[in-house]
């Protein structure tokens, strides 16, 4: 515990400062739409344990996880193919340049028309955003694979699957994790927007519902839950990155076991 405090001293101090500022502002303004941090925290725990907040959080977490998985699972193999097959790249790259800068969230109404109001439209929209981010980054990483590395594994008799599994995937993993970390914030933001339209589940709905009922402590609890979901996603990608790319940071002096 002491070690933890020492290691994260600055973080805890800044957090304490933020809460203090919030508390002071709440006390000074004394309005119902700015409750004190302790009141919000109490309400957050209460909503999580007794209310529906936990269920809504799970729904949102499921949607965003599915999107990340689907977007990444589609983008990685396609990007690897595009890096290897020039013809495919020539076809995909112009498409990408046209569609990449367009904010995907503006397609939400259309996506809903096509896919309905269920989870499909939300997962599709967020998955699309993840897909673009990951595709661009993996294609560039895969194009930089050293020819010697490929010759070496080809000489062992490798097929397409082996090349994907042992060369292209590991070589692009650090880039994939960076792309996912960068997209985590966007994914949560788009999730919020998607969950405010025609649905009665998810944190987006929970927040807008509390807002409509002037239930400010609940509104704050919802915002806190959504922020924590984004943080959890970011931390997850960060840990995955550290775990999966150990070989990159290992200097000659590092120990073997």
């Amino acid at each position: 515990m002491i070690r933890f405090l020492r290691a994260h001293c600055a973080l805890l101090l800044s957090l304490a400062f933020l809460l203090l500022l919030w508390h002071a502002a709440a006390a000074a303004l004394n309005v119902n739409f700015l409750p004190a941090p302790l009141a919000v925290l109490a309400r957050f725990v209460e909503e999580l344990a007794g209310g529906s907040l936990w269920a809504h959080t799970l729904v949102s977490a499921r949607r965003v996880s599915l999107s990340v998985l689907a977007g990444t699972a589609l983008a990685v193999p396609l990007a690897v193919l595009a890096a290897q097959i020039r013809l495919l790249d020539r076809f995909i790259t112009p498409l990408l340049y046209f569609t990449y800068p367009a904010p995907k969230v503006v397609f939400l109404p259309l996506i809903i028309v096509f896919l309905g109001l269920g989870d499909e439209s939300k997962v599709f929209l967020i998955g699309l955003i993840i897909f673009f981010q990951v595709f661009v980054i993996v294609r560039d990483a895969a194009a930089q694979v050293r020819p010697e590395t490929l010759e070496s594994i080809n000489a062992l008799g490798a097929n397409h699957w082996h090349r994907l599994r042992y060369v292209y995937l590991p070589v692009s993993l650090p880039a994939v994790m960076t792309a996912l970390k960068v997209s985590a914030g966007t994914a949560i933001a788009v999730l919020f927007i998607a969950e405010t339209i025609g649905t009665t589940t998810g944190l987006g709905y929970y927040i807008m519902n509390a807002w409509g009922r002037f239930a400010y402590p609940r509104l704050y609890a919802g915002i806190l839950a959504m922020s924590l979901l984004g943080l959890a996603l970011f931390v997850l990608f960060d840990l995955l990155e550290k775990r999966l790319t150990r070989w990159q940071k290992s200097g000659p002096s590092a120990s073997g076991s």
Partner: peptide, 22 residues
């Protein structure tokens, strides 16, 4: 190969096993 062709993301043990696995 001249630059040994070891895959940097696999441990030494798994590098040696790779050809056998394939």
């Amino acid at each position: 190969l001249q630059d040994y062709g070891l895959l940097p993301w696999l441990t030494v043990q798994r590098n040696v096993e790779l050809g056998l696995k394939i």
